[in-house]
Design a binder for these strands. Structure first.
Lengths: 349, 349
DNA sequence: GTTAGCACTCATAACATGAAAGTGCTAAAA
DNA sequence: TTTTAGCACTTTCATGTTATGAGTGCTAAC
């Protein structure tokens, strides 16, 4: 981004009013905004000629762009940024949205389900796809083994972040209840506090060292856990199809490119990683180094539990999006999570 | 569908060859197939004029259609049906596909996860969206309650079909291990064999009748289970975005309509319900009464466990799809499930 | 400093044109 | 009788042309 002469970030009231109107009109209409539109729709008390002059200056200073010489103006990345930082009024969520969120995010599931629900809800309210990035550094809280039938065990892995994973182990021989109880105890003694991604490694050591006599059960359990842990649970795209409603993607080819792009781990992961500052991160267009994102914005919410961050929910959209509503929605979700996740372990420390 | 004169379903060899070539060429090219193309590409030993005559007859008998007078032919619903029933050669899956399936469907998760994996894998191999319909009539196998911390319980609900659901109950007071054990026993005694959808109803009765003294715990558990059971777990669209690659949806508006359509429960549910006969159901275009599906085909696989059917995986596509590969893939998946699901309870009876 | 007025630019839509693809039909060939 | 070569015909698609309209920048007057 180029830095312009010092005064450029200090717009006078009229310029602010015009910039703000252009941004808001373009956000809702997706059409370049002309001087006449501004006078008619936004009742600015200047003539269209004056506004044209001002818009020309705003363009020279980099806040607005013109798709072609005889078109109206659209906000540039810098324009959006100025709007978000200085002009935008925080929006109250409608009762409809609030009640939809409240009814959808209930807190009965585990943390991962909760985050998935939230990603889905956000996507439905904002009509944009969301990406859920789970923090993988999570420690084992507890392992339970449930005997479903003589040869089938259900293994439940509870993490300190509150995620529950379960998988089956199919045995070749019948196993007695007592063995399972013992095994559970030994496993918990050896494994509690282990990072989940090391679980199968440490398990191997445990088997080798002290649990040789249980190996016919343990091998199967180990195999199951290993598989479950290696599964790629880092990302999830919710409601990609929402983009089909946007005029930006009236061409299916563009829609396809967008979908491919947001499915490319590296692009999104890298960008989101850098996005966060103080719960909420906003990256607009070319502020991201990634060229493929130059026309997109990413608004990311960092979700914390016990002061450790456990995941991020990111809204991915063309630059043209309702920043105000997006931010309000994410903030509301965040406040909800603060309540939902805190209560889990008040007593735990 | 109109029924034509008796002999029409008995095509001579040349007509079969031509029909088959038209279908296969159109499936792979998505362009109307002309007589010259057939001669050049498929080395039919007749001149283009002969083939034109035959195609005209095939059209009169309803097997082919012509988008406009100077275009090539495309298969009609009846043409596809004849192809599927009489002409199509069963395709062997490629090693790549087989190994992808084998590596993706492992059997470590519960039945629901397994079905989700399968729906996803099928969608990725066939490049079409899939819909998973879970049979909701499922009986309780077992409930386990795990104490996560003094005031937080994890409830694990195991169904006879092999699905695991878990949810948390947050208590207002500390609860002792012994109470949980007792409670678990009582709950299992009262609830095993209950249809999952009645669970909260029966739970209410249990509370009312005999478990008044546990109510401070049980109320919370009940609330959690109720929520978990009422959640709509009937359907899931995997990889809707795959349709963006199809020329049928080069117009984003059409893509949007398709996505909306397959998100409409009633349309899909009703159609799929009727689709199955003997594991595999194939509904082509206007064979479905639903007008919105007139250009789509649905290939449905019925998945069984212990001779009860537990869910369906359905491929939804424009009529133009590789029926042979689709059917081979679904059959292979089915054979895999036969193994995976049988072993679960060999001993259960 | 503001605004009316006007010439100018460019996108878009409507229409015309020509080439390409593919047909159906006829008459000759097998 | 069946097959095929040849040709007139139809329609789509891409291209080119033109007219319209939205919106601008600039100038001169207020």
């Amino acid at each position: 981004m180029k830095v312009l002469k010092g005064d450029c970030m200090n717009l006078d009231d009229r310029k602010k009013k015009i910039l703000s109107s252009v941004v808001e009109d373009y956000i809702s209409s997706a059409e370049p905004v002309g001087s006449k539109t501004l006078v008619d729709k936004y009742h600015l008390e200047y003539s269209s000629a004056t506004i044209r002059n001002e818009m020309k200056l705003l363009e020279e200073e980099g806040f607005l762009e013109q798709p072609h010489i005889s078109a109206g103006r659209i906000p540039s990345t810098k324009g959006y940024r100025y709007y978000v930082d200085n002009l935008m009024k925080e929006q109250k969520l409608s009762m409809v949205d609030i009640s939809y969120i409240d009814n959808s995010i209930t807190g009965f599931g585990d943390t991962e389900k909760l985050l998935e629900q939230a990603a889905d809800v956000i996507s439905k309210i904002l009509l944009r796809p969301t990406v859920l990035t789970l923090k993988q550094q999570d420690l084992l809280e507890n392992i339970k083994i449930v005997k479903v039938s003589d040869k089938l065990l259900l293994i439940i892995i509870l993490s300190q972040n509150g995620t529950v994973k379960d998988c089956f182990a199919k045995l070749t021989d019948v196993v007695q209840d007592q063995i399972i109880d013992e095994l559970t105890e030994v496993l918990n003694q050896s494994l509690v506090g282990t990072p989940l991604e090391n679980l199968s490694l440490v398990l191997n050591n445990v088997i080798a060292k002290e649990l040789n006599n249980f190996s016919f059960v343990l091998d199967k359990i180990c195999e199951s856990i290993k598989y479950e842990m290696e599964k790629d649970c880092k990302k999830l795209n919710a409601n990609v199809e929402t983009i089909l409603d946007l005029p930006e993607f009236s061409d299916a080819e563009k829609a396809k490119n967008f979908v491919n792009m947001i499915s490319t781990k590296e692009i999104i992961d890298d960008t989101i990683e850098k996005a966060i500052s103080n719960d909420l991160g906003i990256i607009i267009g070319s502020e991201s180094k990634e060229v493929m994102l130059k026309d997109c914005s990413i608004i990311s919410l960092d979700i914390q539990k016990n002061k450790k961050h456990i995941g991020k929910i990111s809204v991915i959209s063309p630059k043209r999006l309702d920043y105000s509503k997006t931010i309000s929605t994410l903030k509301y979700i965040n406040s909800k999570f603060k309540n939902l996740l805190l209560n889990d372990k008040e007593e735990g420390g």
